[in-house]
C-alpha cells in the first residue's frame, strides 16, 4: 500500500473534504432560501486565517503541548486548501470588482500559491540535499566557509620554504582566496571533475614534495563545493518563507481591516 493511502495519512484530507462538502451544502441551502452567505463565510474565513497564522507562532514555541509540528503542518496545508471554497462562497463565485476586494483577493491567492510552492519545495528539495551529502545548519554555512578559507590559508602557509610552495601560494592568491572567502548560491554542475583536473595540474606544478598539502586543498575545495550547494538548496527551502509569511501577514491585516469596515457599517 502506498504511503499516501495509509489511513493515518487519509484522515486529514478526508476531514477536509467533508468540511468543504459541508460548507458548500450549507451555502447552497442558504442560497436557495435567498439567505446571505457572506457574513458567516466571512467570519469562517477570518477564523481560518487566524488558525493558519497560528502555525507560525506554534513553530516559535515548540514546547507547547498542542501537537507536533507535523500535525500542525498537516492542518495548515489542508485547512489552507479548504479556505479556497470558503472565500469563493464569500465572494459569490465571481471575481471581485472593487480595488480593495482585488487587493485582498490577490493577497489571498499569493499566500495560497506561495504556500503550495513551499509545500512542493519541501517535498522535492530534501532528497536533493541528501544527494549532496553532509549535514550542516544553514546559519553555520558562512562561518564554515570562513573556516575553510582559514584552513586553506594555513595549509599554504605551512608549506613556506618548501620547493613549489610559491606555485601553491600563487594558486591560493589567484583562485582559492576568492573561491573560499564566502559561500555562493550555486550548484556548479560537473564542478567535481573540473576541480580534480585543476588540482592534478597543480600537483604536477608543485612537485611531489607538496602532494599532501595539495590533497588537503583539494579536500577543502570539494567541501566548499558541497557547502555552496547546501547554501543554495537550503536557501531556497528557507527563502520561500520570506515571501509566504509576509504575504500571509498582509492578507491577515487586510482581512481584519475588511472585517472592521463591515463591523463599522453593520449597524
Amino acid at each position: 500500500m502506498s504511503a499516501w493511502l495509509r489511513p493515518r495519512r487519509l484522515w486529514l484530507p478526508g476531514l477536509t473534504a467533508l468540511a468543504i462538502a459541508g460548507v458548500l451544502a450549507l451555502a447552497a441551502f442558504r442560497a436557495a432560501r435567498l439567505e446571505d452567505n457572506r457574513l458567516w463565510s466571512g467570519w469562517t474565513m477570518l477564523s481560518a486565517l487566524a488558525v493558519l497564522a497560528a502555525f507560525n507562532l506554534r513553530k516559535r514555541v515548540p514546547s507547547l503541548p498542542v501537537g507536533g509540528n507535523a500535525l500542525w503542518l498537516g492542518w495548515h496545508v489542508w485547512l489552507g486548501l479548504a479556505t479556497i471554497a470558503v472565500i469563493h462562497i464569500h465572494i459569490g463565485w465571481r471575481l471581485p470588482i472593487g480595488t480593495f476586494s482585488w487587493l485582498l483577493y490577490s493577497l489571498y491567492w499569493s499566500v495560497v500559491v506561495t504556500g503550495l510552492v513551499g509545500l512542493a519545495l519541501g517535498r522535492l528539495l530534501p532528497p536533493l540535499l541528501a544527494t549532496i551529502g553532509g549535514e550542516i545548519i544553514y546559519e553555520r554555512i558562512p562561518e564554515r566557509a570562513l573556516a575553510l578559507h582559514a584552513e586553506a590559508a594555513a595549509v599554504v602557509e605551512d608549506c613556506a620554504g618548501t620547493p613549489g610552495a610559491e606555485t601553491l601560494k600563487r594558486h591560493f592568491v589567484d583562485r582559492l582566496d576568492g573561491e573560499l572567502a564566502t559561500p555562493r548560491r550555486t550548484w556548479r554542475l560537473g564542478a567535481e571533475a573540473a576541480i580534480a583536473a585543476r588540482f592534478a595540474v597543480l600537483a604536477r606544478a608543485a612537485g611531489p614534495a607538496l602532494a599532501a598539502p595539495v590533497a588537503d586543498l583539494l579536500a577543502i575545495v570539494r567541501e566548499k563545493l558541497l557547502l555552496d550547494r547546501h547554501w543554495l538548496v537550503q536557501g531556497v527551502l528557507k527563502g520561500w518563507l520570506f515571501v509566504h509569511i509576509p504575504l500571509a501577514v498582509l492578507a491577515l491585516i487586510a482581512a481584519i481591516y475588511h472585517a472592521a469596515i463591515i463591523l463599522a457599517y453593520h449597524g
Partner: peptide, 28 residues
C-alpha cells in the same frame, strides 16, 4: 594535515545551535 572522515563539514548539529535559526525568523 589529515582531514577527518564522515561529515564533510567537520560539523555536528547540536541543540545549542538551534537558537541561531531564530535570526532568520526575526528577519522574517
Amino acid at each position: 594535515m589529515a582531514r577527518p572522515q564522515g561529515n564533510p563539514f567537520h560539523h555536528k548539529v547540536s541543540s545549542h545551535e538551534q537558537p541561531m535559526q531564530s535570526r532568520l525568523r526575526r528577519l522574517r
